[in-house]
């Protein structure tokens, strides 16, 4: 078995294989003074910051995006690529005019899928971005999943229900768009 960086990532670092609260702790540690990266990252403080929130969302949703996009491009029509290339067009042309337009719906569908995953993230966000400040726009705002948990934990189920229903509606809307794009793709 060849042991590459990719294998190392798949086994130990992929957010697919580690609990998301641990991801949150890992992100915290990465930016802490004990981290080997601290000299490079000391000017950045992601805790309770929009950066921390974005990082947590990105870390858990990017593998879904990357794996699905790779699968989509792997399924692309290679014969069409050869044909267009043999007409004198280079790889950039093929990427821009063949791959992207042909896979556009899939790219949007996968982006929505990743967005859905990012929105529903809780485990890592509660560790690194419990209450987010992004001046001058907002201060001490809880991300929606944290907010639902907070409402449930402090005030009980009835208090959390409305917010949970709102998030569910957003998630279902995203799922609907993903379904509609998949159907359109299948028909084309």
């Amino acid at each position: 078995m060849s042991f590459t960086l990719s294998t190392l990532y798949d086994i130990f670092l992929s957010p697919v294989s580690i609990p998301h609260t641990v991801v949150g702790i890992m992100l915290l540690l990465t930016f802490s003074p004990s981290s080997p990266f601290y000299p490079l990252l000391k000017s950045i403080n992601p805790v309770d910051d929009i950066l921390g929130l974005s990082l947590a969302m990105f870390y858990v949703s990017s593998p879904i995006y990357i794996m699905s996009i790779k699968e989509t491009f792997d399924k692309a029509d290679v014969e069409l690529e050869y044909f267009i290339q043999s007409l004198g067009k280079d790889r950039y042309f093929i990427f821009e005019k063949v791959l992207i337009p042909e896979q556009f719906d899939s790219i949007i569908r996968i982006a929505l899928l990743s967005l859905g995953r990012a929105i529903s993230e809780f485990g890592s966000i509660i560790i690194i971005a419990y209450s987010v400040t992004f001046l001058p726009f907002f201060q001490y705002v809880k991300p929606v999943t944290v907010f639902i948990w907070y409402k449930y934990d402090v005030y009980g189920l009835s208090s959390a229900l409305g917010y949970a229903a709102a998030l569910l509606t957003i998630s279902l809307l995203i799922s609907f768009f993903i379904y509609a794009l998949s159907r359109k793709n299948a028909q084309a």
């Binding site: 014969e79 069409l80 044909f83 007409l87 067009k89 337009p101």
Partner: peptide, 21 residues
């Protein structure tokens, strides 16, 4: 030579075009 610079055009057996244009 790369395929695009070879001066040889290859049309595959499968009828394939850029579908969305």
């Amino acid at each position: 030579y790369a395929l695009e610079k070879r001066g040889i055009t290859y049309a595959p057996a499968k009828p394939t075009l850029i579908n969305r244009i």
